[in-house]
Simulated scan of single mutants.
Amino acid sequence: MLEIITSPALTTRHGFFTRKGGASSGIFAGLNCGTGSSDQAEIVAINRTRVAEAMGLGPQALVTVHQVHSADAIPVTGPLADRPQADALVTATPGVLLGVLTADCQPVLFHDAAAGVVGAAHAGWRGAVDGVLEATIDAMERLGAQRANIHAVIGPTISQAAYEVGPEFFDRFRDEDPETTRFFANGQGDRLLFDLPGYGQWRLRAAGVGHAEWTGHCTYRDAARFYSFRRTTHAGEADYGRLISTIRL
């Protein structure tokens, strides 16, 4: 059985999928939807079909992009001939299933119920700093959304307690905006702990969305439910699965 996390803040069909209920095995065991992983392509296709069907659509309706930690958001109206490089998608077309892949980074789903516009963004620290969340909002506005009416929900992502960074990481944020120091806590020695979902919510609210929240799920701490790039790295494993988050009208 698939496990789908949802939020009452999003009043259209959506889901932050966990790794449960998939066909992958080994280090990918579960619902690995990452075509960029070394998992068997036909197994990943089965997993992605299960996701689309759980959202009431066929596999051809699921649209994803080649994510590159950019601040690029693109509008889509149907299946893409290829996978362009971008990290967010928006649509006002019913029946198009937007999807983003993550394994510690933030999956962010957006909805303006009044305008009938949705969006999905992959927002790691780099994409968030460079403005992928704001770019998604801007792209939604070009389709008729109003940012004050947009609800944005951050799904399972790495929590502050598990996100250890070095002083150079802290310096980059402080130098860009001293206010961001609030998202760091002291760790061991010169290490610090970064609050990625807190930072994401701050950026969303500063951009003027009507509502922003995090579901509260940590990808690193719950190996039974979530894939995690950082956990895989610490374990010395060769690769890792990708979680998928989806939204549609």
Results as ranks from 00 to 15, higher is better:
residue 18 T to P: 13
residue 19 R to P: 02
residue 20 K to G: 00
residue 20 K to C: 04
residue 21 G to R: 07
residue 22 G to E: 09
residue 23 A to C: 13
residue 24 S to L: 01
residue 24 S to V: 02
residue 25 S to Q: 15
residue 25 S to Y: 10
residue 25 S to N: 12
residue 25 S to V: 11
residue 26 G to L: 00
residue 27 I to E: 07
residue 27 I to L: 14
residue 27 I to W: 02
residue 28 F to L: 06
residue 29 A to H: 12
residue 31 L to D: 06
residue 31 L to P: 07
residue 32 N to M: 01
residue 32 N to A: 00
residue 33 C to P: 11
residue 33 C to E: 02
residue 34 G to M: 07
residue 36 G to C: 02
residue 36 G to T: 09
residue 37 S to D: 10
residue 38 S to Q: 11
residue 39 D to M: 03
residue 39 D to A: 14
residue 40 Q to L: 14
residue 43 I to A: 00
residue 44 V to T: 12
residue 45 A to D: 14
residue 46 I to R: 14
residue 46 I to Y: 00
residue 48 R to L: 13
residue 48 R to Q: 14
residue 50 R to G: 04
residue 50 R to W: 01
residue 51 V to P: 10
residue 51 V to Q: 06
residue 51 V to W: 05
residue 51 V to I: 11
residue 52 A to P: 03
residue 53 E to V: 14
residue 53 E to F: 05
residue 54 A to Q: 05
residue 54 A to C: 10
residue 55 M to N: 02
residue 55 M to Q: 09
residue 55 M to P: 06
residue 56 G to T: 05
residue 57 L to H: 12
residue 59 P to V: 11
residue 59 P to N: 11
residue 60 Q to E: 15
residue 62 L to D: 01
residue 63 V to E: 01
residue 63 V to K: 00
residue 64 T to N: 12
residue 67 Q to E: 12
residue 67 Q to G: 13
residue 67 Q to A: 11
residue 67 Q to P: 02
residue 68 V to A: 14
